[in-house]
Simulated scan of single mutants.
Amino acid sequence: MDNVLLEALVRALAVGTPLLLACLGAIINERAGIVNLGVEGLMAVGALAAFAVASKSPDASLWAAVGAAMLAGAALSALHAFATVTLRANQFVSGLALAMIGTGAAGLLGKKFEGLPLFNKVPDWNLGGFTLSPFTLAALVLAGLLAFYLNSTRGGLTLRSVGENPAAADVLGVNVGLVRWLAVMGGGALAGLAGAFLALSYRASWADNMTAGLGWIAVALVIFVGWNPLRAVLGSVFFGFLYYLQFRLQGNSPIPPEVFSAMPFILVLVVLALAGRRGQAGNAPAALGRVYVRGER
């Protein structure tokens, strides 16, 4: 029984890893006051960049592949920063456009990589009969570091102040635009890292739509965990367990498999409704989604 529970926890951690990484990136964005609905597209581009570099030759560097994924995520998110921070466009419209651009570009450019072998994948660590990806440990460490940064450092205070009251931060000499630009690009880099995990570790291949809606769940997860990086760990494990349960029960239950495929998305609606009932949405940064123009109230 203990082995079954341990296996479920390890698998939930593995499946929840891309959710956690993408959720941490979205938390950085939204703590600075910028909503980014383009996480799905950023993950897709990151996965493609990682696989494209890693599949070049048997000697290709996995570190270079991971770096390429993060760079691709940051570069694509710069479009969102330019639109929302510099041009002051609607953040929701820009994020949706980013999701479509990212998934569309990845699907188009990735056609030549479908079916190609991955010479090297990121090796998993053996933990007494169970395996764990280094990406999973990195995601857990990043969650702890982000929580410390936001709550215990001057930089974290600056980031939170920009998301809560950008006008007050501006008066104190904070470059609101620069902070928001860096936050959006940093969040995009983490979303790209989530895509690298899919391409280099979890699936070790490239296929169109390999993100399978994980980016959208990560966006909803931010609200569910109240913009808290440590709660994001628990939330990602919870949804990871739902995916694990989906795989375990398919073929062993009279319930149609489509029900299990839809389960994580149904639970997203449920948990968001519950979060709204208990006032979780009240934890959102006060300036979230609002355009800041110096001198305007």
Score class of each variant (00 low, 15 high):
residue 20 L to A: 11
residue 48 L to I: 07
residue 189 A to I: 02
residue 155 G to P: 03
residue 258 E to F: 06
residue 77 S to A: 15
residue 85 V to R: 02
residue 177 G to W: 01
residue 168 A to W: 06
residue 137 L to W: 13
residue 36 N to Y: 00
residue 236 S to P: 02
residue 153 T to W: 08
residue 37 L to E: 02
residue 19 L to V: 09
residue 99 A to G: 00
residue 151 N to F: 04
residue 90 N to Y: 02
residue 41 G to T: 10
residue 253 S to I: 05
residue 255 I to H: 04
residue 120 N to M: 08
residue 95 G to W: 01
residue 123 P to D: 07
residue 48 L to E: 04
residue 87 L to M: 15
residue 69 A to G: 14
residue 286 A to L: 13
residue 151 N to E: 14
residue 294 R to M: 06
residue 109 L to F: 15
residue 227 W to I: 02
residue 8 A to V: 12
residue 218 A to H: 07
residue 68 A to C: 12
residue 80 H to R: 10
residue 121 K to E: 10
residue 68 A to E: 03
residue 254 P to F: 05
residue 145 L to Y: 05
residue 229 P to C: 04
residue 193 L to R: 04
residue 77 S to G: 01
residue 43 M to Y: 04
residue 54 A to L: 05
residue 217 I to T: 14
residue 191 A to I: 03
residue 18 P to D: 06
residue 27 I to A: 07
residue 285 P to H: 10
residue 82 F to A: 15
residue 32 A to C: 09
residue 287 A to Q: 04
residue 121 K to Y: 05
residue 208 D to A: 13
residue 179 V to W: 07
residue 104 G to C: 06
residue 198 L to S: 09
residue 103 T to Q: 12
residue 126 N to Q: 12
residue 288 L to V: 14
residue 164 E to M: 02
residue 71 L to P: 00
residue 25 G to C: 05
residue 173 G to M: 04
residue 178 L to Y: 11
residue 282 G to V: 03
residue 174 V to G: 08
residue 129 G to P: 08
residue 17 T to D: 08
residue 187 G to Q: 03
residue 184 V to K: 04
residue 20 L to I: 09
residue 266 I to Q: 02
residue 202 Y to H: 15
residue 294 R to C: 03
residue 12 A to C: 08
